[in-house]
Simulated assay, not measured.
Amino acid sequence: MIPNNVSGDTVEAAAADPGAAPVVSGDPARVLDLPGAINLRDVGGYRTVDGRTVRWRMLLRCGAMHRLGEPAHTAFTEIGLRTVVDLRELSEFQHEPDMLGPVPVTIAHIPVYAAVLPSTAATTEAEPAGSAGPGAAVHPRVDTAGEAVAAGAVSALRALVDDDTPLTLEKLYTFAVDERGERLTAAVLALAAPDALPAVVHCSAGKDRTGMVIALTLALLGVPDETIAADYALTARYLVGEIAEALSTAPNGKPVPAELLTCPPELIVATLARIRDRHGDVRSFLLAHGATPTALDELRDTLLAPAPAPANATSTAATD
């Protein structure tokens, strides 16, 4: 059984059972406590506005995965992991390749911030065990989890390098949805590829880039904004200690703006609102940036469990 233990928190036994009742949004029991994984969480169990439920062990979100060991390999094999959607920039991707050992996965490298896609990006190819994609380093650096997350923060700082005004999370998210909609959509489409699921979406911290892609996916499924916001804000619980310390200072020694390290739930709600103001809904946003109706419908059908039959329908059927 894959552990769902979070130090200092009471974990509901039902959360460890993918067939159990849905866990409320933001419940720490959905965290997969695997050595070497940063902020690894299952987004299963969330209810949609039409009464359906996101399937367990089909879509995971995570931070850097370059320190994974045998327990994670075993857990991912048990899940049947098929796809890794890596949203990091090329330097992060090559510097700290995912260590997936014998897990046979397909890698979709889709950097969100880069002005020009590297030749390794936006493609989905089967990779040898333990590799991180074409051109990736053969041997991973043995560094700390905090260094990986700090690299992600630096990527964010560089995303608007030509803008002289202070970088804020709001500006970064606006930039992503306004200028990189095709990248965010490509990440969602990677989940919609044939036999792509179960999958994990990740960046370095599992906060901003991952947060936006997961938010778009959950919104597409019909999960309410307040649930999406609670899932997004849950990241703040796990970016602590060594990781938080590393995040506070850039590699050049300068402090990273504290605002960039937060996970305000109202930010992801405002981001979804901006998309709806401009496109009507998240589905239309994705369609405007390269998705097809068929792909989005298939993703919904795969990720969502059927809605339960009404109680009166069940009783009527029993008397027929």
Rank of each mutant, 00 (worst) to 15 (best):
P3Q: 07
G8Q: 03
G8I: 01
G8L: 00
V11D: 11
A21H: 11
D27L: 06
R30I: 10
L32C: 03
D42F: 05
R57S: 07
R61P: 03
C62W: 01
H66E: 02
H66P: 01
P71F: 06
T74E: 13
T74Q: 15
T77C: 08
R82C: 05
R88W: 00
D98I: 12
M99F: 03
I107F: 08
H109T: 05
I110T: 12
I110N: 12
V112P: 01
Y113H: 11
Y113I: 04
A114Y: 02
A115G: 06
V116P: 01
E125G: 06
A126K: 13
G130M: 03
S131T: 15
A132S: 14
P134V: 09
A137M: 09
R141W: 08
D143V: 14
A145T: 08
G146K: 03
V149F: 10
V149I: 07
R158W: 00
R158F: 02
R158K: 12
L160C: 09
L160H: 04
V161N: 02
D162P: 01
T165W: 13
P166Q: 05
P166G: 07
L167S: 07
Y173R: 01
A176S: 11
V177Y: 02
D178I: 01
L184D: 05
L189M: 15
L189Y: 02
A190S: 15
L191S: 12
A196Q: 05
P198T: 10
V201Y: 06
T210L: 08
M212N: 06
P224T: 15
P224R: 11
E226H: 13
E226Q: 12
A233N: 05
A233K: 07
A236H: 06
V240W: 09
G241M: 01
A246T: 05
N252M: 04
N252S: 13
P255S: 10
E259T: 07
L260V: 04
L261Y: 00
T262W: 02
P265L: 09
V269F: 02
V269G: 03
T271N: 05
A273C: 08
I275S: 01
R278Q: 14
V282A: 02
A288L: 06
A288Y: 10
P293W: 03
A295D: 15
L299D: 01
R300S: 13
P306L: 11
P308V: 10
A309T: 13
N312Q: 15
N312D: 15
T314E: 11
A317Q: 09
A318N: 08
A318R: 15
